[in-house]
Simulated assay, not measured.
Amino acid sequence: MSVIDTSNAEHYQWGGGCDGWHLVQQAGLSVIEERVPPGGAEARHAHARARQFFYVLDGALTIEVDGIVHRLVARQGLEIAPTLPHLVANRGDVDARFLVVSQPPSHDDRVPVPLTESC
């Protein structure tokens, strides 16, 4: 057991300029800190098994879930049930930093969903 933060966590990049740090990476649980710059977004998708909770640390995050747009600011979170199509985007002027808690981990559980709405 040791203290972990973005300086010593496993780091990865995604979506052309976004960052992720694996804070907890276990078979039944994933906790990731992510950074999305202004204008950054992920592809619309769903998860077959993973339940996710997004919690904003800094900035603002727009999350479209099954056609409903939610705007979260620091200290706000949103739970997304398995199979619900969703898309995360930063429509603000500063980096969005947030936690993504997934149970079970979501990385091998993505199902692409065609984009029908834009956030």
Rank of each mutant, 00 (worst) to 15 (best):
M1W: 11
S2N: 12
T6L: 05
S7M: 04
A9N: 07
E10V: 13
Q13T: 12
W14F: 15
G15M: 04
G16C: 08
C18I: 06
C18N: 05
D19R: 03
G20V: 01
W21Q: 08
W21E: 13
W21R: 09
H22A: 12
H22K: 14
L23I: 12
V24H: 09
V24Q: 09
Q26T: 15
G28K: 11
L29C: 15
L29E: 08
S30C: 08
S30Y: 00
V31M: 06
I32C: 10
I32P: 06
E33T: 12
E34H: 04
R35A: 07
R35C: 08
P37K: 02
G39S: 05
G40H: 03
G40T: 00
A41V: 11
A41F: 14
E42H: 09
E42P: 03
A43Y: 05
R44G: 01
R44T: 00
R44M: 05
A46Y: 00
A48T: 10
R49S: 10
R49V: 08
A50L: 04
A50K: 00
R51S: 15
R51C: 04
Q52A: 09
F53A: 05
F54K: 02
L57C: 01
A60D: 05
A60Q: 09
A60P: 00
L61E: 02
L61P: 04
L61H: 01
T62D: 07
T62P: 02
I63Y: 01
I63F: 03
E64A: 02
V65I: 03
V65N: 01
G67W: 01
G67M: 04
G67F: 03
I68R: 02
V69W: 00
H70W: 05
H70A: 04
R71W: 05
V73A: 12
A74R: 10
R75P: 04
R75D: 15
Q76T: 07
G77P: 06
L78Y: 03
L78M: 03
E79W: 09
E79D: 13
A81Y: 07
A81G: 12
A81R: 13
P82C: 09
P82H: 02
P85Q: 01
H86S: 09
L87R: 14
L87M: 15
V88C: 12
V88A: 15
A89H: 05
R91Y: 08
G92I: 07
D93G: 13
D95H: 11
F98K: 07
V101C: 15
V101R: 04
V101D: 04
V101N: 08
S102Y: 10
Q103K: 11
P105A: 08
D109C: 06
D109I: 07
R110A: 15
V111Q: 06
V111P: 06
P112G: 05
P112Y: 06
V113N: 03
V113T: 11
V113Y: 02
E117L: 11
S118K: 13
